[in-house]
Design a protein around this nucleic acid. Structure first.
Lengths: 247, 247
DNA sequence: ACGAAAATCCCAAGTTCTTAGGAGAGGGCT
DNA sequence: AGCCCTCTCCTAAGAACTTGGGATTTTCGT
């Protein structure tokens, strides 16, 4: 008898081979949804967590959750408090919604947020965290009424999730190439900004670098302009995003 | 008879399951190298292509190529002209070194660069491109003397490559995180901080969240205290470090 | 040697943050 | 019920940042 384990293994590799050659976004989505059904998942969300100044929907790569659920979720801004999402601050390894229920002492409100999913066929699900070197975090999250959450299924889902994200990004890469380009900072601007990020005031930085406070301010202002920021805080965020300063 | 196809499928899922639970960088590396040997690959390089102003070695996550080869490669700055690498400008799908030989009309110099690998047990290999939504591109590149380059092996390598990169990045992030402890922020504090990081003033944030400006200021101050910061800019940096807000 | 880009410095009014207090309402836990 | 935490709101002076100008000297590549 072929075990279920090997069945999943073969399915998964087949899946990868199948969508590996697809270049059309919609076709890839169809394949993903179909594959997930075999595991008992009825809907899926793939998104990058919104960073400062980004819309929730910006990072949404694929979302087949019921429309009303998504709208409701966005409207309530659940992404900042849904315990299933905030669990990402503790771990970068895959987990299920019920894992969160068990691990954390949830407040009534938090439990309610998870339970709300049941009304939309999203009773139980998985979160597959996907990290990048630039520290942005994406998740692949399939869910359903009674999905298979066995270890073998999880491993398969992890592959499917990571690979799906790859395939989707790949299909979009041409479209996204019109990326934000920024004017590169000068050495001095970077240096000053690094101190700003460290929480120093312009006076302190002037001291450190042995230059006038005016000069420091001026460097910061130039950097802000180049990074398209009106405030220092956002300039720092942008600088980190663009790799101009490191954490 | 069990086909080779299914053998690879099972191996691959086993591999994923095995390293999925590992958190130590070195252990993960060992598993990867061992798994690659089963396919005939004797060494592997995983790196992010250097952007402007970046050192070649900055994005090197894992490299088991012979030391002399790496040094030689870096010294000659081959990364900017090696046809195997520049092929990435044309495709985001996996390919082998011999694919490049066939596809392109290589100049003598370019051919020589590829051939040089033979002296170091790197005669033939694969490039698995891994894309991110920001412009950066990573590659997973195993090579050897006579590796298996069948379609099924390539699919398996794609999974192994993408997954290995995940596992390695994950282990690095988790390590950094557990280093530092901080008082967790409340939901509201996080929400406010996210807007601060987006470059909004307290007045604007008050408007957005429909609360008093005083309240916003107060949340920011509490967050600053918890994050051990005297300035907003540093508070933002800390919040990102601690994963309280995402990039 | 020339020009472009970077780095340095200056002013000054207006806005925003910082700091260090206090205080009430409501939820959750024991 | 009593306690702790969160969220809300408040004051007010002084420090820091923002904005939009301008000017001079260095540095660096061609």
């Amino acid at each position: 008898m072929q075990s279920k384990m090997d069945h999943y293994a073969k399915r998964t590799l087949d899946f990868v081979e199948r969508i590996g050659s697809l270049t059309d976004y919609d076709e890839i989505c169809r394949e993903i949804v179909e594959e997930l059904e075999a595991f008992g998942f009825t809907s899926v969300t793939t998104m990058t967590l919104p960073g400062p100044g980004e819309e929730f929907a910006d990072g949404m790569l694929l979302n087949t959750r019921p429309r009303e659920y998504t709208d409701h979720y966005i409207e309530k801004n659940y992404v900042v408090r849904d315990p299933v999402v905030t669990e990402l601050r503790h771990t970068v390894y895959p987990y299920s919604w019920s894992d969160v229920r068990e691990r954390r002492d949830l407040s009534k409100e938090d439990s309610r947020i998870i339970d709300e999913g049941s009304e939309f066929d999203a009773r139980e699900g998985l979160i597959i965290p996907i990290v990048t070197l630039s520290r942005s975090m994406s998740i692949f999250s399939p869910c359903g009424r009674e999905p298979d959450l066995s270890q073998r299924a999880r491993s398969a889902m992890e592959i499917i999730g990571i690979y799906s994200l790859q395939a989707l990004k790949r299909s979009l890469i041409q479209r996204k190439r019109t990326d934000i380009v920024h004017t590169p900072l000068t050495v001095r601007e970077r240096e000053v900004l690094q101190w700003v990020a460290a929480g120093k005031s312009d006076d302190e930085i002037a001291d450190i670098l042995s230059i006038a406070t005016c000069t420091v301010t001026s460097h910061v202002e130039n950097a802000k302009m180049k990074l398209d920021a009106f405030k220092r805080t956002y300039a720092i965020v942008q600088a980190i995003r663009f790799g101009e300063i490191s954490l």
